[in-house]
Amino acid sequence: MVKNFSSKNLYRTNQTNFNKIPGEKIAYWATTTIYSAYQHGTLQKVATPRLGMATADNTRFLRYWYEIDSRDICFSAQSRKDAVATKKKWFSYEKGGEYRKWYGNNQYVVNWKNDGYQIRHFAGEEGKIRSHNYNLDYIFNPGITWNALSSGSFSSRIVLEGHLFDNAGSMMFLKNPQDIWYLQGLLSTPVVAQLLTLLNPTMNYQPGTLSELAVIKDANKYGIISDKSHACYQLSKEDWAYQESVSDFSPLFLLAHIAEHTVLVICHIHRRISKIRVTDKHPFKKLATWWHKIQNVPKKCQTFGLGGH
């Protein structure tokens, strides 16, 4: 029984407000702003969240991209028909990963040769197909992926065409493709983090939960939010490319400081470029161009044995 009605731990609300939140969640701490936001509609009106694929044997069907000959990987298939036409075996695969917003965590590839024949016919001893959720009408389309399980905050990322997706990295697909930047901007705000505590207090973010998020399409702010979201995406993409283990690694940011003529910079570049493999993305001719830049450093740096070898 409450003895002190002035206590900060006492909440008062009209129980009819619970009807305004999908599932009639008893979120007594929700504010009037949150209740009013739901009058504008939910995410399911602008996007279709889909649970990702379960291969039933990730050890068999998944690899990191760098474990595979790059000539047998397709990173840019735009449809199932296009994927089959490439005659390649491995395709980009979204599988959640660490906390990261806007772009990244695309390290995996999946065996989807011949329209995923092996996965789609992967059966147990009793003959029952073990894999499921192929999302054949959605794969390879652009969308937004998110981490299904998280020990911290919710995070989502833009995915352009060419990807399949796992149940640990489900995706949502926009009904109007132009909304992708606006919606990603919303999903990256503390507002969504707050809403998720009302809808699902656990750390397991399923498509059903995401579909119940309140979404307000503000015509007056739509353009600026979309532009800023796109700018954040570009910055995140550049940041991701700084890691040597990613498929779109670019060492050009290292060369940007070549004019400083410092021994430390030259040593850093020398060490990194020497470890890059010759692949389709980093052909010998391209590597030779980078190496030429190293050899043309000032004489004073060459005295340390760093620029002429």
Rank of each mutant, 00 (worst) to 15 (best):
L213K: 04
L213Q: 05
A214H: 02
A214N: 07
A214R: 06
A214W: 04
A214C: 08
V215L: 05
V215H: 03
V215R: 05
I216L: 12
I216W: 12
K217A: 03
K217V: 10
K217E: 08
K217C: 03
K217H: 09
K217F: 08
K217Q: 08
K217D: 02
D218H: 01
D218N: 10
A219F: 07
A219T: 12
N220K: 10
N220V: 08
N220W: 02
K221E: 06
K221N: 04
K221G: 02
K221I: 00
K221D: 00
K221P: 03
Y222H: 08
Y222A: 05
Y222R: 05
G223K: 10
I224G: 07
I224D: 15
I224H: 09
I224E: 15
I224N: 13
I224M: 14
I225G: 02
I225Y: 00
I225Q: 00
I225D: 01
I225T: 03
I225F: 01
S226Q: 01
S226T: 01
D227M: 13
D227V: 11
D227F: 12
D227R: 13
D227G: 07
K228T: 03
S229H: 07
S229A: 13
H230D: 05
A231T: 08
A231H: 11
A231W: 09
A231F: 11
A231Q: 11
A231R: 08
A231V: 06
C232S: 15
C232I: 09
C232A: 15
C232V: 09
Y233Q: 02
Y233I: 06
Y233M: 02
Y233H: 08
Y233K: 01
Q234T: 13
L235S: 15
L235M: 15
S236D: 04
S236T: 02
S236I: 00
K237W: 12
K237M: 12
K237C: 06
E238L: 12
E238H: 09
E238T: 11
E238C: 05
D239M: 08
D239T: 08
D239N: 09
D239Q: 10
D239A: 11
W240H: 06
W240G: 00
W240T: 05
A241G: 05
A241T: 01
A241K: 07
A241V: 04
Y242P: 02
Q243I: 07
E244V: 11
E244A: 11
E244F: 02
E244L: 12
E244C: 05
E244Q: 13
E244D: 10
S245P: 02
